[in-house]
Nucleic acid binder design. Structure first.
Length: 270
DNA sequence: CCTGGCCCCTGCAAGC
DNA sequence: TGCTTGCAGGGGCCAG
């Protein structure tokens, strides 16, 4: 489900309800999601005030003085702030209750999501060594160009590599390459500096625009307030196989790259 | 080091 | 209608 814009939309949705609020209890309805849920979540989080809700890559970080809860939504995860007495539904795996009478409820049918813990001053090993945030100046086309030299993997796979830049998933990789006019199958090492400069610009523009639209709802993504993401209407490539390119009318094609469906216009992208 | 493939899991839609 | 198959927004891990 969620790429960076959807995770950021989720962050903005939950933050006003839980920042500055005290956790009164944690309910784990199963001991694991993708990984076992560390004991610190149940032992240290209750009683803490959530000082801030941050995002790093596709992780949400609930910061407290005792440590940070890391939440990842995987493919199908969803977070909502609900009244504490809201009935439990299937796949409602975790509740974090607050002194406001609300609970932050984590729902995730496929359980590719995660709930982890990071002690104060530490960086979780999964966050070590990952690339820059795409919407900061640490990410630019020059970086992509330098890292890509000699690489034979498709440029789309390269763009989705978390060591290169974080947060760009399957939808926005296709969209950014469309906007930059680059064929997703092209070897990363054979894309020019000039084209990487353009690609980085488009990544930034598209992610910012998608956040502005509340993300992309393909089937089930809803923001914590229940709103769908409206960027779906602005997709040029993703999910449009066989449909006419919105720019030139050529049918959009789909090809599998890195075990992921990749959509492109054979006329606009070279 | 880099690359491609596999796997985790459930739900849904399409095809027979 | 019901069964089977394939696919889905992520990403860690492994062998080559």
């Amino acid at each position: 489900m969620p790429e960076l814009p959807e995770v950021e939309t989720t962050r903005r949705g939950i933050a006003p309800h839980i920042e500055g609020r005290r956790v009164t209890g944690v309910v784990l309805r199963r001991p694991d999601l993708r990984w076992p849920i560390p004991r610190e979540v149940a032992e240290l989080l209750p009683g803490q005030v959530v000082d801030s809700v941050d995002r790093r890559a596709k992780y949400l970080l609930l910061n407290t003085s005792a440590g940070t809860a890391l939440l990842h939504l995987g493919m199908s995860g969803m977070l909502r702030v609900l009244p504490a007495d809201t009935p439990i539904a299937k796949h409602d795996h975790v509740d974090i209750a607050f002194d406001t009478g609300s609970v932050l409820r984590f729902t995730d049918p496929r359980r590719f999501g995660a709930l982890l813990w990071q002690m104060p001053g530490e960086t979780h090993e999964l966050l070590e060594g990952i690339g820059p945030e795409p919407l900061t100046d640490d990410f630019d086309g020059e970086r992509m160009y330098q890292l890509s030299r000699g690489r034979t993997a498709p440029v789309k796979t390269f763009l989705m590599d978390n060591a290169v830049v974080v947060g760009v998933g399957n939808i926005y990789a296709s969209e950014a390459l469309f906007a930059a006019g680059i064929d997703p199958r092209r070897a990363a090492g054979k894309v020019s500096r000039e084209r990487y400069l353009r690609l980085a610009q488009e990544v930034k523009r598209i992610l910012a625009l998608a956040i502005n639209r509340g993300g992309t709802t393909l089937r089930d993504f809803l923001a914590p307030d229940g709103a769908p993401g409206y960027f779906f209407q602005e997709l040029f490539a993703y999910g449009r196989a066989g449909e006419a390119c919105k720019v030139c009318g050529t049918p959009i094609r789909v090809v599998t790259l890195g075990q992921r469906a990749s959509f492109y216009c054979p006329h606009c992208q070279r």
